[in-house]
Design a protein around this nucleic acid. Structure first.
Lengths: 112, 112
DNA sequence: ACCATATGTAAGAAAATATAACATAAAATT
DNA sequence: AATTTTATGTTATATTTTCTTACATATGGT
C-alpha cells in the first residue's frame, strides 16, 4: 500500500485552503453544505482540510467554471465512488477465489 | 526529481502542529528562535509549517527528552546538512566527469 | 556565583474563523 | 410568466487563534 499520510491528513485551515485554491471561504463552506467536501473539525469547531480536499476543490472550481452545478458534481462524485468500490469488491472476490483454489490450507503450512 | 509537494508545503498553522506533535506553542516558537525550524509566514504574520517540519519537531522532542540541548541539536543538523551537500556535490562532479569523457559534444549531436 | 537554557504563564492586540441572516442575479422548474 | 433553487457576496457578532513582549523560574554549564 501507498503512503496516504500526507495527502489525506486533515490539517489545513480554511484560510490557507482559500489561498491555495483561489476560492472564497464562502464558496468553500458552501461546497461543504452541498456535500462535496467533508472537512474535519478541531475541538472548538474549526474546519481542517487535507491536500486531497484541496485538489477536489480545484476540480470543483473547474467544473463550476464550465457551468456544472453542485448537484451534478455531487452525482458524478457518487457515481465515481461507487465504481471504485465495485472495483475493489471484484478484486477482493478474485483474491478470495485464488486463495480457495491455491492458497495455504488451514493447519498445514508449506507442505511440511 | 521527486514530488516534494505535500511533504514540504508550508500550510499547517501552529495550533495544528501543536496537536500533531504534542509540543506547546511556546516550545515550537522557541525552537524557531533557536534556529531549528523555519516556518513561513502568511501575509499578516501567521506561521505556516510543513509535514517535514512536523517530523523534525518530533525528532527534536525525542532528542530533548534524552536531554540533548537545542544548541547541540542545531550542530548535528548543520553537520548532517553539510554531509548532504557534500554528497550532492560529489555526485555532480562525477556526472561532470562522465560527461566530459563520454557525454555529447558541443555542436555535434550523436556522432553524426 | 553567574549566565544560558528551556519552558510556563499572562497581557493585550490583531487576525482568523464560525454561524446566521439578508441580498441578489441567474438559471432551472413548474 | 411566476416561482423556486442555486451560488455567491456581504454584514454582523461571537469565539478562537495567533502574535509579540515581558516576567518568572528551575536546572544545568562555565
Amino acid at each position: 500500500m501507498e503512503e496516504p499520510s500526507y495527502k489525506n491528513r486533515k490539517v489545513i485551515t480554511i484560510g490557507v485552503v482559500s489561498e491555495l485554491t483561489g476560492l472564497s471561504e464562502r464558496q468553500i463552506r458552501y461546497y461543504e453544505e452541498r456535500k462535496l467536501i467533508f472537512p474535519e473539525r478541531t475541538e472548538r469547531g474549526n474546519r481542517k482540510y487535507s491536500f486531497s480536499d484541496v485538489e477536489r476543490l480545484m476540480d470543483i472550481a473547474d467544473k463550476r467554471e464550465e457551468g456544472v452545478r453542485t448537484y451534478e458534481i455531487r452525482q458524478d462524485m457518487l457515481k465515481a465512488k461507487k465504481k471504485e468500490e465495485d472495483k475493489k469488491l471484484r478484486e477482493r472476490m478474485l483474491r478470495g477465489q485464488l486463495n480457495a483454489r491455491f492458497g495455504v490450507q488451514k493447519g498445514r503450512l508449506n507442505g511440511k
